[in-house]
């Protein structure tokens, strides 16, 4: 249903990197010819959701915060059964993520080992190692797909069983949100906590509504609009830094993995890590969304990207996007 809806409407989105230090939001909305009210989603900021003064100033046009985080608090206060069902679902998803992470550690270790062998003067010839590397990456991809499917199934189960959109507490909020959206020309989706943001957008059924409006989204906001959300950090203080599939995003932008703040979070000079990342998610394109970067997507058309916007390649480089 949602997919059909999206396909019939031209989705117009500009994706950006972090906006705090060098905002280009104003220019992004200009790129979409938006002059009027902008609906603002800052649910990723969680309890700081309402502290949007700086953001509203950067918009360069009037902004109305949809306050999805506060609305979800209200929903769960008014509907304890839904709250409990949601908690059970989230606990299950956390466990699923942990089990997936444990399996992923081994699958990624195998892929890295094959990769090292393929690039070393080992006794194994390239002829032997290269197919093994491909198989090892295929196993990681299979694990990723399996995890995404399990996550989606559990979320689907929650929505089928509880039909949140039909429950009064949610329906009331959805009506108010729609009334605000009716006054707006476009939507701005800020970054922050990607799960907090995604869950609230799903709870209020925003994926279909958003497809009708031009959107500027950055960081986690950009991630939730894609088909698949990848959590990533190459040098965390704990663990090996294996990127993880969180699950499916809202799917408004196909064939793209959003990597906000990539310069800071990824070892972009490590060709083997970059190559493995790119091969793991291919044919989706890995787009690095750093400060001042932008990528303009209109459904059915080629992307347009800012001059400094880059993507990861399967050869292990991070190169400027021309046109994909």
């Amino acid at each position: 249903m949602t997919g059909e809806f999206i396909r019939k409407n031209a989705v117009r989105v500009v994706l950006l990197g972090p906006q705090r230090m060098a905002p280009i939001l104003d220019q992004a909305f200009s790129l979409l010819d938006v002059e009027g009210n902008v609906a603002v989603i800052t649910a990723g900021w969680q309890e700081r959701e309402a502290e949007d003064q700086e953001l509203t100033n950067a918009l360069g046009r009037p902004g109305i915060n949809l306050k999805l985080y506060a609305r979800s608090d209200e929903v769960f206060r008014d509907d304890p059964e839904l709250f409990e069902a949601n908690r059970v679902k989230q606990d299950f998803l956390k466990q699923l993520q942990e089990l997936y992470r444990r399996r992923l550690t081994h699958a990624m270790a195998a892929a890295r080992q094959m990769q090292r062998l393929a690039h070393s003067d080992s006794v194994a010839s390239g002829e032997v190692v290269v197919p093994h590397l491909s198989r090892a990456i295929a196993m990681v991809r299979q694990l990723d797909d399996e995890h995404a499917a399990q996550v989606e199934a559990r979320i689907g189960q929650f929505h089928t069983e509880w039909k949140p959109s039909e429950r009064p507490a949610v329906a009331r909020q959805r009506a108010e949100i729609q009334a605000i959206l009716d006054q707006c020309e476009a939507v701005a989706i800020a970054g922050g906590h990607v799960v907090a943001l995604l869950n609230r957008m799903r709870l209020f059924g925003l994926q279909a509504t958003l497809a009708q409006l031009p959107i500027v989204a950055w960081s986690a906001g950009a991630m939730v609009l894609t088909e698949r959300i990848i959590l990533f950090h190459d040098s965390p203080p704990q663990g090996r830094g294996d990127a993880e599939v969180l699950g499916n995003g809202l799917g408004l932008i196909p064939g793209l993995v959003a990597l906000p703040n990539a310069r800071r979070r990824l070892l972009l000079d490590d060709r083997q890590r970059i190559a493995l990342f790119a091969r793991r998610v291919a044919p989706a394109h890995c787009v690095a969304l750093d400060e001042r970067c932008w990528l303009h997507y209109t459904s059915g058309q080629a992307w347009r990207a800012g001059p400094t916007t880059r993507q990861l390649t399967e050869s292990g480089q991070c190169v400027v996007i021309e046109a994909v």
Binding site: G192, L231, P237
Partner: peptide, 18 residues
């Protein structure tokens, strides 16, 4: 301190993209 504090009190590094 980085390795110690991030182990005892891990932050939402993997979840937050601002």
């Amino acid at each position: 301190l980085r390795v110690a504090l991030s182990w005892l009190f891990p932050g939402p590094l993997w979840m937050v993209y601002e």
